[in-house]
Amino acid sequence: MTAAQEETGPDPVLHEDRLDYTPTARSVTLCRRRAARLVAEWGHPHLADEASLLVSELATNALLHGCMRGRLFRVRLTLTPAVLRVEVSDPRGERLPGPRAPGADDCYGRGLIVVARLADRWGVEPRTVGKTVFAELTVR
């Protein structure tokens, strides 16, 4: 059983996409657009904007806090009959994310607040090297 199946239950994975990106701002744009396109192609255009925003926030966090020079980050999408799961993995397992209370004038610090409000479930999973931050949307 894959990690996605363990997290989402016994539902079979209908679609899966996994791609590694260089740790640059351009990659966040590319993975956000790819996620929106794939989710729509997989028959859930009503989830494309949410998936795109989740990928964008998680990939931005990976870029800012989890990436290391010369190491890629990975975006993985899985769709089961019940759940669309967005995962972003990076090589920095010692830097665990958590929502924080940004100041009114802070330009950053709201990404995980957005993820927590948008996703039906989110969390962090350790990897042999690094971590995976995931967010799940219930398929309606």
Rank of each mutant, 00 (worst) to 15 (best):
G130P: 01
G70N: 13
E7T: 09
T128K: 03
R69L: 10
A25F: 00
A135C: 10
F73A: 08
Y108E: 07
C107N: 06
Q5T: 13
T8N: 03
H65Y: 14
R18F: 12
D90K: 06
D17F: 10
L63E: 11
T24N: 03
L30K: 05
L137Y: 07
E6I: 10
C67Y: 06
L63T: 07
E16Y: 04
L118S: 03
T128L: 14
A48V: 13
V133N: 01
R85G: 05
R37K: 08
S27P: 12
E41R: 11
A40E: 09
Y21W: 15
R33C: 06
V13Y: 00
H46Q: 12
A4V: 03
E87F: 08
T2E: 02
G70S: 10
R140H: 14
L58M: 14
T22L: 15
V115R: 09
D106F: 09
R74C: 09
E136Q: 11
E16G: 12
T128C: 03
D120F: 01
S52Y: 03
A3G: 04
P91D: 03
L14H: 02
E57Y: 08
G111Q: 10
E41H: 11
L84H: 03
D11C: 10
H65E: 06
D11L: 05
V114Q: 05
N61G: 05
C107T: 07
L30F: 12
L79W: 15
E125S: 03
C107V: 14
A25V: 04
H65A: 09
L53Y: 06
K131W: 00
R127V: 00
V75T: 13
T128N: 05
T78W: 05
L79M: 07
L54D: 07
R26V: 10
